[in-house]
Design a protein around this nucleic acid. Structure first.
Length: 570
RNA sequence: AGAGGGAUAGUUCAAUGGUAGAACAGCGGCCUUUGGAGCCGUCAGUCCUGGUUCGAGCCCAGGUCCCUCUGCCA
């Protein structure tokens, strides 16, 4: 089955979000007329992995800013390193941004500008601002100096312009092997900003590029490609993360040297979330090592994974807005995300009864062979959603954890002699506990009160608990996958620096229930369908589902007062 | 140690020289045919030391702590 994308947010995603410091900067630009009142942002992913929750924040920021100011946003792939990039990632990124509910003004690639970037590089050489260096990578590193010591000039730094030009052209022509030469900007080897110590502009990479094929064997570095791409596209505000702050002088230097349109780079703090890894390198390892089933494994922090898990675009956008934008890095509690997911799903997810860990209940005074169909609300939060019909009979399943033979204080659910309500059906009282030879409970005998039909007692008596249930004869069997956090510590800072992060991968992050019982109204649910299993949590139909057997992912649990009480009790 | 940034409730953000607020989390209560949802209440903070000012989270000085940077990655 394919993912049902009909639940993707339409165009016109939620408004730009709450105010942040970038609005102040743009307002100032508009006041001074720097960009003529224009706002044009871009989202520039490198297609070397799947987008994750941190990218979602950047996407919402860039598209949100443009929307707030009536501007535009380009999607531009930063595809300058063919050894790491792949068409699969390009396709996934496009799918994910669309699913989040955003539409770009232009779909572009840095590789669209390779020829222009090359010409500008020749200009730089001709102006004496760049040179071909043939030091090895090790030698360049050695010449670069350290954080506290200045670097030294390359012996090739002052070679004649014509010689650099000739060699650069021959680099392009493919006359040299990988690593033999590079083009470097001629700036200042003693700059305290290491990015300004004659940064490499081009390296030789005899590699096939997903878009330009074998047309090039030299590829521009990020610093050389990014600002000029922004300039070409008329980007006004080039929003990136904090680690590029040190690169801004270089960004500015290039466009000034070239005398071309000058966008404004603005840095903000990357969004991190507890228990979520946002290092592409580590995510790639989880995938390659088979710790997870793929980039879209519902335990992953990728947008694809969150979609498969049942998160909604609205929930993710709400979360990003809740976290906000700042220049002081931090780590947001994943409970904020979960709150947003519950908040959205509570309003839209149809209710269903499903028993994950069944225990059989026999109603001793219920007529053999009788079946009643009860109306139950599809969604109590949304009366217009109507009702569904749920079959009831003599033999039922309830959740094993809803029964305790010797209940502790505050356990409101079923126990011997205790009366509870079965949701939308009857009050029942437990009369007998049947055990097997090993003393394990295998069945409960209960009586029902016919007068409580529909779930209300005409004499006004109350019960403390309402349980979900499924008629044994009508139950649909399904596989249910329960997920826990992928990491055993909330923050990467909580890990021992000497240990590999793999040691902190939660070995119990996936629990598979092969035979859950679900009420028959679930039959035919399409992939991507989101439901609430009452009293249990929100679930969605996984693409692994077949016509014979549905597979569900647990999106998020419901808040659970009882579990909390138990934990408090020790 | 050099350069660049950052420090406000447990967490993420507001407060733009004039009463330090919100959300999430926590705690307590109300309500409930989901121990859900909702509603109400509550706990809790300006990194430190000086200075300017009628008044400082905000401005100034000094300090402390944290983050980023020594890829032919982005």
């Amino acid at each position: 089955m394919a993912i049902d994308e009909t639940n993707a947010a339409g165009a016109g995603a939620a408004a730009g979000g709450k105010r942040n410091f970038i609005h102040d900067i743009i307002d100032e630009h508009n006041r001074t007329g720097r960009f003529g009142g224009r706002v044009h942002t871009r989202f520039p992913p490198e297609p070397n992995g799947y987008l994750h929750v941190g990218h979602a924040a950047s996407i919402c920021l860039n598209f949100g800013i443009a929307e707030t100011y009536g501007g535009k946003t380009n999607l531009r792939f930063d595809d300058t390193n063919p050894t790491k990039e792949d068409q699969e990632y390009i396709d996934a990124i496009i799918r994910d941004i669309h699913w989040l509910g955003f539409e770009w003004a232009n779909l572009l690639y840095a590789s669209d500008y390779f020829e222009q970037l090359y010409q500008w590089a020749e200009t730089l050489i001709q102006n004496g601002k760049a040179y071909v260096d043939q030091l090895s990578a090790d030698e360049i590193r050695e010449h670069r100096g350290t954080l506290t010591e200045p670097g030294r000039n390359s012996p090739h730094r002052d070679r004649p312009t014509a010689e650099s030009l000739d060699r650069f052209r021959r680099m392009r022509a493919g006359e040299f092997k990988n690593g033999e030469m590079v083009l470097r900007a001629k700036i200042d080897m003693s700059s305290p900003n290491i990015n300004l110590r004659d940064p490499v502009l081009y390296r030789i990479l005899h590699a096939h590029h997903p878009r330009t094929g074998d047309a090039w064997c030299i590829y521009p570095m990020y610093d050389w490609a990014h600002g000029q791409s922004d300039s070409i596209e008329g980007i006004t505000h080039s929003i990136c993360t904090l680690e590029f702050e040190d690169h801004r002088p270089l960004y500015d230097w290039f466009v000034e040297q070239l005398g071309i349109y000058h966008p404004q780079q603005i840095e903000f703090a990357r969004v991190n979330v507890t228990t979520m890894i946002t290092s592409k390198r580590k995510l790639l390892r989880l995938v390659k090592d088979g710790v997870v089933r793929g980039w879209d494994d519902p335990r992953m922090p990728t947008i694809s994974a969150m979609r498969r898990r049942g998160y909604t675009p609205k929930a993710i956008r709400d979360f990003v807005e809740m976290v906000g934008v700042s220049r002081s890095g931090g780590i947001a509690d994943i409970q904020m995300l979960e709150y947003c997911v519950r908040q959205d799903l509570n309003k839209i997810a149809p209710r269903t009864m499903a028993v994950l860990h069944p225990i059989k209940v026999v109603l001793t005074n219920y007529p053999e062979g009788q079946v009643e169909w009860f109306d139950s609300p599809v969604n109590p939060e949304d009366p217009t959603a109507g009702t569904r019909q749920v079959p009831f009979s003599k033999e039922l399943y309830i959740e094993a954890e809803d029964f305790m033979e010797t209940p502790p204080p505050k356990f409101y659910r079923l126990s011997p002699g205790k009366e509870v309500r079965l949701r939308s059906a009857y009050f029942v009282t437990c009369s007998e506990v049947i055990k097997d030879a090993d003393g394990r409970i295998v069945e409960l005998r209960c009586t029902y009160d016919p007068a409580t039909r529909g779930g209300d007692a005409p004499d006004g008596r109350k019960v403390k608990a309402t349980l979900h249930w499924v008629s044994a004869a009508h139950a649909v069997t399904a596989e249910v996958r329960l997920y826990d956090y992928l990491l055993t510590v909330p923050k990467s800072g909580d890990m021992d620096e000497d240990k590999d992060f793999m040691e902190y991968v939660n070995p119990n992050s996936l629990e598979i229930i092969d035979h859950a019982y679900i009420e028959p109204s679930i039959t035919g649910a399409p992939v991507g369908k989101q439901v609430q299993f009452e009293r249990v949590g929100y679930f969605t139909v996984d693409p692994d589902s077949t016509a014979e057997k549905l597979v569900f992912n647990r999106t998020v649990t419901l808040k659970d007062e009882w579990t909390k009480l138990q934990k408090q009790g020790g």
